[in-house]
Each structure stands twice: as structure tokens, then as C-alpha cells.
């Protein structure tokens, strides 16, 4: 019994210590952001590995998610004779929820895990301490560009996901199921508001980009410098990012779409 309490107390203390380290780490990243202006090339390289390499998985998943939404929505809506509202249904669910959330989860799996593994391995092979020896701040040189690249890429990827998904939904809805194309678009335009839906979706994806890049970079930076430690850190990145994205999504949705 005492050992159980001891274990409980210790693990609580450890997780709070970790949260404290993560917060300090975030402050350090943000402090390095300004110095990045003088070195845009570092950012560009990370935009490539974080954003461009995630492009394909995001667009293809978006296409299929949109197509499935259209197919499933059609069968339910046709029971009520409301097939024309398929456009609103597909667009609203993509722009408000699925776009930011699914692309955030994919981003955490595709880019976040790669970031953690990369930085964890840098730490394991003592590249980070090597940099410190040469008086190069590894946070400014390595971490901050990756963080900013994640923050920039996420809204773009989420917008792409939604846009491609809507096109996929239109292809299935109008091409395969025979929904009128004019009604599909006009109902969508009448039902989707720029400020309420699209801007809120962009804000969501910014928050998810922030959180998942932060988690991925911190887990890598904080990893135990062994091959097992790096593998555990990578797993934790994906799990923690998924939890944070889904939990934050609930909070953000309650805040944004509460009053209607």
C-alpha cells in the first residue's frame, strides 16, 4: 500500500517536472523566433521536410475523407429528401472539424514522429552537445526553425485537406450519386460563413500545429539518449499529440460554436 502511494506521488511529481521543463523549453523556442528572421534558409529547409513531405498524405486522405463523407451523408439525407444539402454537410464537417483535426492527427503521425526521432537521435549521437561546445545554441539552430515550420505548415495543410475533401465530396455527390451541382454549391455557400466557419477552422489548425510541434520537439529534446529512449519518445509524441489535439478540439469547438 505504501509503495503504491509512493509510486503515485513520484509519478505525479515526475509529470509535473516534465510539464515545467516543457514550458521552459517553449519559452526558449519563442525567444529564438526573432533571431530566425536573419536566417530564412533554415526555415525553408524545415518547411520542406515538415510541410512539403506531408503534402501527399494530407491531400490523398482529404480526398478520400471527402468522398466517404459524401457517400455516407447521401444515404442519410436521401431518407429525408434533402440530398441538396449534401454540400453544406460535407463542407461544414470538413471545414469545422475534420479538416483541422484529421490533418492534425496525420501531421503528428507523419511530421511529428519524424521530428522527435530526428532530434532524439541528434541527442543520442551527441550532436546537440557538440553544437553547445561550439557555442551554437541548438535551440535556435535546430528547434526553432522546425517549430515555426510546423506552425506555418499546419493551417496550409488543413486548408488543403478541406479544399480537396470538398472537391472529392463534389465528385462523388454530383458525379456518382446525381446530386444537382448548382444546388450542391449554392447550398454550401449559403450555409458556410467565412468568419464563423473558415476562420475558426484556421485558428483551430494553428493551435493544433502549435501544440503538436511543441510536443514533438520537446519529446525529442527530452528523450533518453538511447535507441530505446528515442523509440519511446516517438511513441509518446504520437500518443500525446493525438490526445492534446482531440481534447483541445473539444474545448475550441465549445468556445467557438457555442453561441448559435
Amino acid at each position: 500500500m505504501t509503495s503504491f502511494l509512493e509510486y503515485l506521488g513520484q509519478s505525479t511529481r515526475i509529470s509535473f517536472t516534465k510539464l515545467g521543463r516543457a514550458s521552459y523549453f517553449l519559452v526558449q523556442i519563442l525567444a529564438g523566433l526573432l533571431s530566425l528572421i536573419t536566417r530564412p534558409r533554415l526555415l525553408l529547409k524545415q518547411l520542406y521536410s515538415v510541410g512539403v513531405l506531408s503534402f501527399l498524405i494530407i491531400t490523398i486522405s482529404g480526398l478520400f475523407v471527402g468522398m466517404v463523407l459524401s457517400l455516407q451523408g447521401y444515404y442519410t439525407l436521401s431518407d429525408f429528401g434533402a440530398e441538396e444539402t449534401l454540400g453544406v454537410m460535407v463542407a461544414a464537417s470538413l471545414v469545422r472539424e475534420l479538416g483541422p483535426v484529421v490533418s492534425g492527427l496525420l501531421f503528428a503521425g507523419r511530421a511529428g514522429s519524424a521530428l522527435t526521432a530526428e532530434i532524439g537521435l541528434m541527442k543520442a549521437t551527441e550532436q546537440l552537445s557538440g553544437m553547445e561546445m561550439m557555442a551554437v545554441d541548438p535551440i535556435r539552430r535546430i528547434i526553432t526553425p522546425r517549430f515555426l515550420a510546423g506552425l506555418i505548415s499546419m493551417p496550409l495543410l488543413a486548408a488543403l485537406f478541406s479544399a480537396v475533401g470538398i472537391i472529392g465530396g463534389q465528385m462523388v455527390g454530383c458525379g456518382l450519386l446525381g446530386v444537382d451541382e448548382g444546388a450542391f454549391w449554392s447550398q454550401m455557400q449559403a450555409g458556410i460563413d467565412f468568419r464563423d466557419d473558415i476562420i475558426n477552422g484556421v485558428i483551430k489548425s494553428l493551435v493544433f500545429g502549435f501544440v503538436s510541434s511543441w510536443i514533438a520537439l520537446f519529446e525529442g529534446y527530452d528523450a533518453i539518449p538511447t535507441s530505446e529512449g528515442v523509440s519511446r519518445a516517438t511513441t509518446r509524441t504520437v500518443v500525446n499529440s493525438a490526445f492534446s489535439i482531440l481534447g483541445l478540439d473539444f474545448i475550441l469547438t465549445a468556445l467557438m460554436f457555442g453561441e448559435h
Partner: peptide, 11 residues
Amino acid sequence: GLFFLAMQVSN
């Protein structure tokens, strides 16, 4: 993509 969402999808 954002432009498409703003112009074609929303009002």
C-alpha cells in the same frame, strides 16, 4: 486552398 474555401465554399 484557403482562397478556394473563402470564395467558392463560403458566402
